[in-house]
């Protein structure tokens, strides 16, 4: 689909779409649900329930929340044992220490992977996910197969991500249903002792913090 946000922004701000350039540069017609979204938003703004600027600002907030934030916190926990302890005691306040604000009422429980325990996060009922620190969840996390099977056959699910967990390691599946959100603190990869905090953060992907894969060194042993 062609990039539409400029056209849509000008549509809702000026109320009129310029039909003069009816050639290939004209954006595609919006679908039914986009029309619904536009109409709901414009009606609520007209009736002063909120301002257009609030939507624009919240889009900026959402765009700024990516797994890189979680990666920074995890890397800090890997190198700083006292921060790690605070992170495990209260995930939200530890994130706030690093400037990651939580714009909702959720708490964050950090689940530590060890040589005896591997954690995995799911929301079977919907798509609860630690958005303030990881951004928006991937499609597979929100769709039925993952949500149905993670609580029934977590080892088979992990295998689909290429992760095999030995039988003597406990798998703990956390199903989010209420105000608490979860983040997995993956194990620091062996052989990473020489890496800087920034290089360590580069090893921490979104999927390591959901728990479907472990954090790994890059194939050639460095983090570049």
């Amino acid at each position: 689909m062609s990039s539409q946000d400029q056209a849509i922004s000008s549509t809702h701000e000026h109320g009129v779409h310029d039909h003069a350039d009816a050639d290939v540069s004209e954006p595609a017609r919006p679908g039914y649900y986009e029309v619904m979204e536009t109409a709901v938003r414009e009606l609520l703004i007209e009736r002063r329930f909120f301002e257009a600027g609030e939507i624009r600002h919240q889009i900026e907030v959402l765009d700024s929340r990516t797994p890189a934030l979680g990666a920074k916190v995890v890397a800090r926990a890997w190198v700083d044992p006292e921060f790690r302890a605070r992170f495990l005691a209260n995930g939200r306040t530890a994130c706030e220490e690093l400037g990651i604000t939580f714009y909702d009422d959720t708490q964050l429980i950090v689940l530590e992977n060890t040589e005896k325990v591997h954690n995995l996060i799911v929301c079977t009922l919907c798509s609860c996910y630690p958005r303030p620190v990881l951004g928006l969840p991937p499609d597979w996390y929100k769709l039925k197969p993952y949500r149905a099977r993670a609580v029934y056959e977590p080892r088979a699910v992990l295998a689909e991500f290429g992760t095999i967990i030995p039988d003597d390691v406990e798998i703990r599946v956390s199903d989010s249903t209420a105000q608490v959100r979860f983040l997995v603190l993956p194990r620091r990869p062996e052989g990473s002792e020489h890496l800087t905090e920034e290089q360590l953060a580069a090893l921490v992907t979104r999927d390591t913090m959901i728990g479907v894969v472990p954090a790994m060194l890059k194939p050639d042993g460095d983090a570049s």
Binding site: T124, L125, W140, L143, K144, P145, Y146, R147, A148, R149, V151, Y152, V157, E160, F161, D175
Partner: peptide, 8 residues
Amino acid sequence: GGTPADPI
């Protein structure tokens, strides 16, 4: 949760 489902 726990209902039959496809590969991810």
